[in-house]
Every structure is written in C-alpha cells, then in structure tokens.
C-alpha cells in the first residue's frame, strides 16, 4: 500500500470511529432515560371500616408519579372489593374499551360504562358491550395492622 492510501485509510477510519462513538453516546442519551418512570408503590387507599363486604367502593387516589425530572400528581379512581374477611382486591375504574370511567350500579350489581354501554360484573369480567377484556386488576392488601387497605399503583 502506498503512503497516500495508508494516510487516507487512517483519516477515514479515525473519522468513522469518532463519528460512531459520538453517535452511540448521543443515541443512548436520546433513547434511554432509565429513571423516567418509577416503579409502582403501595399507596394507602382507605380504612377497612369504610368498606361493605362484596360491594365495590370507589376511591379517588392522588398519586405522585415521577415523569423524568417532573413530579406529576395524577388522580386515579380504583374500586376496592372486600370479601368480608381477609381477602381484598382492587379494580381500575378505567373502562378497557376507550378509557371512560365506569360506575358501580347498585341495582344491577354491575359496573357500567357511561360511554358505550360496556357492562362488567363485580369481579371485573365483561358481561356485555364492546370492552375487549376485563377491568384491570390492581394489587391490593391489608396493612399489617389490618386496619388499612393498601393498593399498588
């Protein structure tokens, strides 16, 4: 290889290397804010004494979520369902069809969505209407003292 071609190869590979190193760092920076969202945590949703066995009770929770450098305060409605003993579960109030907030109808003992007539039973399963899947279940438990309901949001 003559000197001219060797130098050209050196220039081209070095420039290509610098360019790719810079692109890799900038690309990783642009794509991956690893702490943009934080994982769910247990939030106090109410006292057990406020619940009636087998009747879903709506709770509006204010949860703060980390959105990058911003702390966002979001309101979220969950239904707490208690079996009257030790077992408790929670359902999201967001309809799985198009995201309207469902309501508990005490007469028919169903969840009803006001938007497109979706109907769910007390366990969140679809009874009729357009919703494609059951209401989202949210992890719930009693705190160690047994007085408070905690949900994971």
């Amino acid at each position: 290889m003559d000197r001219r071609r060797a130098l050209a190869l050196f220039v081209n590979t070095t420039v290509a290397f610098i360019g790719s190193a810079l692109s890799a760092v900038l690309g990783a920076f642009a794509l991956g804010p690893s702490r943009a969202w934080q994982s769910a945590r247990w939030v106090r949703a109410g006292a057990l004494t406020d619940l009636t066995p087998n009747v879903p009770v709506p709770r509006v929770l204010v949860i703060s979520r980390q959105d990058g450098w911003y702390r966002e305060r979001a309101r979220e409605t969950v239904f707490l369902v208690w079996d009257g003993d030790k077992s408790i579960h929670a359902l999201s109030a967001t309809c799985t069809h198009l995201g309207c907030q469902v309501r508990w109808d005490t007469d028919t003992t169903n969840f009803r969505c006001p938007c497109h007539g979706g109907v769910f039973d007390a366990q969140g399963h679809v009874v009729s209407g357009p919703p494609p899947r059951p209401l989202d279940r949210i992890e719930a438990r009693l705190d160690p003292s047994g007085a408070d309901v905690l949900v994971r949001l």
């Binding site: 760092v25 900038l26 990783a28 920076f29 991956g32 804010p33 690893s34 702490r35 990058g68 450098w69 911003y70």
Partner: peptide, 22 residues
C-alpha cells in the same frame, strides 16, 4: 422551578453524564 431538577435528571444516567460532561 425545573432547570436544576432537569439537569440532575440528565446526569442521573451514564450517557447523560457523559454528554453533559462533554
């Protein structure tokens, strides 16, 4: 309100630290 926190957010990841450092 946010400038300081946003920089802290930037340097909370390794690529962010390097880009900010450069």
């Amino acid at each position: 309100d946010h400038a300081y926190d946003s920089i802290r957010f930037i340097v909370s990841t390794a690529p962010g630290r390097i880009v900010h450092g450069l």
